[in-house]
Amino acid sequence: MGTVLRRLGHRDPVAMARIAGALGLESAPAEAPQRIADRMEAEFRSLGMPLRLAELGIERGRLPQVLEISLRNFNADPKREFVREREMLGELLESAW
């Protein structure tokens, strides 16, 4: 989640500002995604939860398959915008691994 927030949060600055505000994180709007990501990762780390896909036992070679299935998720992408962002989403998955 942290990787996704840091990489894509700037696309929805109002939403990020609202989340940061609700969490009590005072920050400049541009820094909100980073601050939210830091907070969530701290919460998960305190529970002993993995933060990277590699820690979940996901093989790096399976990431292209994960990407292809992700591109067809209608609930997440009702306007079919993901296909145009294939390269970026692929890089994002690699970053999260």
Binding site: M1, M16, G57, I58, S70, A76, L93
Partner: peptide, 24 residues
């Protein structure tokens, strides 16, 4: 779930990962 970009991507990745991971 609110459809801002981080949530959309995280949701799509997580459901895909569950599918691939369980199959493996």
């Amino acid at each position: 779930f609110v459809r801002h970009w981080p949530m959309r991507a995280a949701y799509a990745f997580s459901t895909s990962l569950i599918s691939v991971f369980r199959t493996s």
